[in-house]
Design a binder for these strands. Structure first.
Lengths: 155, 155
DNA sequence: CGCATATCAGTAGGACTGAAATCA
DNA sequence: CTGATTTCAGTCGTACTGATATGC
């Protein structure tokens, strides 16, 4: 009995939906983060690149909203991506408070690869389930999100 | 268009099971943490109290395994609970490296209240689902955990 | 000696807060 | 003056790593 602990949780905790949710979520996160990390990108950076590609040139505040990031965190993500020339940052002449962030070709190319990696991670995660079960899971999660306000900031 | 952002994520991200899982997990975590926090207890402290009640007097290393905590974090959790006299710490005469951690009556009493709070949080979380759907969700999560190794440390 | 225990210090990632400077 | 934008400097939670002192 040295280290063969099955990542135990107390009895009463193991039964909790919130506990299992946490375990599955962590697994999902690890699968995605491992693949993104192999491309040198964090989850936040991926979301930012995706939001930028979908919305076109945007201010950082817009990107924060569209990518689901905090504005303070957008700053770091942008400068990190900037260093790799995955996007451009320029002042907005019409509103000198703003930066205009634009995708570069390299950014779009990388994004395509990241999309594929993320999709792979989803398949890895859901491998244990058949098609019907995957639909069930997504449906149940959607129902929870809808009835819970979807927007987690409320409350 | 000031702050009515629906906690947006990019299109391609919204579809991801891992994304929804993250949102639901966060909701679950917040519901549980809010109720535990009202009793002045963190999730780790709850798991520790639960493990202690279920296993009886234990060393900190045993508690770490049984509660699913890191040994380094057990130290802080124990001393925090100790200050509130929710448990006792004593040296083990048979092995002077060890501490023997024991529940106090106050600890057990609080634990009962915490169990009720946590159960309430589960009900809040699952309120949008009917009985059958809750069973489905738990079943799907269990299948994922089983086929994924259950123990998250593998990998 | 090798191994276990408790402890402390420090790291890393994620989400967030508060304040400042700048400007519409 | 009000309010938006960017930025910096912290905080908080969680999880983990590494080193140390002690004792088996």
């Amino acid at each position: 009995m040295h280290s063969d602990a099955p990542l135990g949780a107390p009895e009463r905790v193991r039964h909790l939906t919130s506990w299992r949710l946490g375990l599955v979520n962590r697994r999902a996160h690890d699968l995605v983060a491992a693949r993104l990390g192999a491309e040198g990108v964090t989850g936040r950076q991926y979301r930012l690149l995706a939001a930028l590609a979908e919305a076109g040139p945007s201010s950082q505040a817009q990107l924060a909203d569209r990518a689901g990031l905090d504005r303070a965190d957008v700053v770091d993500a942008v400068t990190a991506l900037l260093r790799r020339e995955l996007l451009d940052r320029a002042g907005d002449p019409t509103d000198r408070r703003r930066n205009v962030i634009t995708s570069t070709d390299a950014g779009l190319t990388l994004l395509a690869r990241l999309d594929a990696e993320v999709a792979e991670a989803q398949r890895d995660l859901l491998a244990p389930l058949d098609e019907g079960e995957r639909g069930q899971l997504d449906h149940l999660l959607d129902r929870l999100l809808l009835r819970h306000g979807d927007d987690l900031t409320e409350d």
